[in-house]
C-alpha cells in the first residue's frame, strides 16, 4: 500500500493483514556532495517503491524520512526512533528502513530494521539496465523482509 488515500482506505479496512512499514531514508545536502546525496535518495525511493509493488498487500510504504546530511547522527536516530515507535504503537509489527546512505551502516546494530544497498547512477543507465539494477536490489530487500516474516 502506498501513502495515498485510495490505498489507505483499504489499509484501514484490512489493518490486521498489513503489519509492515517500509520507510525510505532520504538525505538532503547542498554541499559538494549534493549530486551523490540526491542519487542515494532517488535510488532508495526507487527500490522501496518496487518492493511495495511486490508486497502490496502486507506493506505500507510511508513518505520518506528526510534528514540533512549535516544533522548529527544522534539527532537523526532520536527522530527515527520516534517514527518507529509511532508505527509500532499503531499495530505495525515490522518496520524496515531502506537506504543507500552509508552513514546508516555505522549504526546498523542500533537499527535492526535497516536494509542498506549501494546506490547506482540511474540517470546514466538505459531503461533496460535500470530495470535490471533495480530488480537486483529489490531482491535483497524482498529476501530480507520475507525472512523476517517467516521467523
Amino acid at each position: 500500500m502506498n501513502w495515498q488515500a485510495i490505498d489507505v482506505k483499504r489499509y484501514l479496512q484490512n489493518k490486521e493483514y498489513i503489519d509492515t512499514v517500509i520507510l525510505p531514508l532520504v538525505p538532503l545536502s547542498w554541499e559538494s556532495d549534493m549530486l551523490a546525496t540526491v542519487r542515494e535518495g532517488e535510488f532508495a525511493l526507487a527500490i522501496a517503491s518496487a518492493a511495495e509493488r511486490e508486497l502490496h498487500g502486507r506493506v505500507l510504504l510511508c513518505p520518506p524520512f528526510a534528514y540533512l546530511k549535516s544533522e548529527a547522527m544522534s539527532e537523526r536516530m532520536k527522530r527515527l526512533k520516534m517514527w518507529e515507535n509511532e508505527c509500532r504503537a499503531n499495530g505495525t509489527k515490522f518496520v524496515f528502513f531502506v537506504t543507500s546512505d552509508v552513514d546508516w551502516k555505522r549504526v546498523e546494530e542500533e537499527c535492526p530494521g535497516l536494509i542498506w544497498f549501494a546506490s547506482a547512477p540511474l540517470e546514466h543507465l538505459e531503461a533496460r539496465h535500470q530495470k535490471d539494477v533495480i530488480e537486483e536490489n529489490v531482491e535483497i530487500v524482498l529476501k530480507r523482509i520475507r525472512t523476517e516474516w517467516r521467523s
Partner: peptide, 9 residues
Amino acid sequence: PVCTHLGCT
C-alpha cells in the same frame, strides 16, 4: 499474478 486478496505479486 496480482493476488486477489490484497494485491501482492
